[in-house]
């Protein structure tokens, strides 16, 4: 992929013209390859900025884990997403539904990558890990990234909705498919991010690729335990 192709692809992806994106779904493996390449590069760039506050090594780990998290979520849900789309009446194949989700995640990664210089600027402005106010800095960094990821997620999903609406020619069907995909991806994504933690890296824990007990417990059990503790108090 040369620079002009990349530029054209970025413009088409961000413009998110449903007609053009729908044409991508019919194309050969070239689009999937390029989307995957862009997805890995952009999410890796953003991931590197996430771990940088904790340690450069953590930054490297997250640069590997962040694209991995997205790709694992897409791949593991590919079959169920394809089935749900067909059950809900979308005239698309498994390959096309997988590619639609990949396109949406690529757009998310591109938006996140475009905001990465600003995240690095924020990092420069935050108190260092070793300082007395490390806890506050960690909180601010965490919150800012939650806002940034949510913003990018909303935009990417709105574009995916427009594509689905074009494909199904029915707003309600498109909404149902989008919600079902979102539910499936969020359900698995939360658990995978739990298994692959740490991403930001807690100030009081050692730098590591994954925790010592990555498969011990689940995201949902932890949320349940925390809720029970709150209710118990």
């Amino acid at each position: 992929m040369n620079i002009n192709q990349l530029q054209n692809m970025l413009t088409t992806l961000c413009n998110a013209n449903p007609q053009k994106l729908a044409a991508w779904l019919d194309e050969d493996k070239f689009v999937i390859q390029n989307c995957l390449l862009l997805l890995i590069l952009c999410s890796s760039f953003y991931g590197a900025s996430l771990g940088l506050w904790r340690d450069p090594l953590q930054s490297f780990y997250v640069a590997v884990k962040f694209p991995l998290l997205i790709l694992l979520t897409c791949s593991c849900n590919a079959v169920i997403n394809g089935m749900l789309a067909q059950l809900l009446g979308a005239p698309i194949s498994f390959r096309q539904s997988f590619l639609s989700v990949i396109i949406s995640f690529t757009l998310l990664a591109v938006i996140l990558a475009s905001l990465t210089p600003l995240i690095l600027f924020l990092l420069y402005n935050l108190p260092a890990m070793a300082s007395a106010s490390a806890k506050e800095a960690h909180g601010i960094f965490l919150l800012t990234n939650v806002v940034v990821i949510s913003f990018a997620g909303v935009i990417a999903n709105l574009r995916l909705f427009a594509l689905l609406e074009y494909l199904c020619a029915d707003r309600i069907k498109a909404m149902q498919i989008l919600i079902s995909w979102l539910a499936a991806n969020l359900f698995l994504g939360c658990q995978l991010s739990w298994n692959l933690r740490p991403f930001f890296g807690s100030p009081h824990l050692d730098v590591s690729f994954v925790r010592d007990d990555p498969f011990d417990s689940s995201f949902y059990e932890s949320v349940f335990t925390i809720l029970m503790n709150y209710l118990g108090d």
Binding site: L13, N15, V110, I111, A113, S114, L115, P117, I155
Partner: peptide
């Protein structure tokens, strides 16, 4: 802000 301007303009 340049990268985000390009992406936001396209979006």
């Amino acid at each position: 802000c340049y990268p985000s301007l390009y992406i936001f303009a396209c979006l």
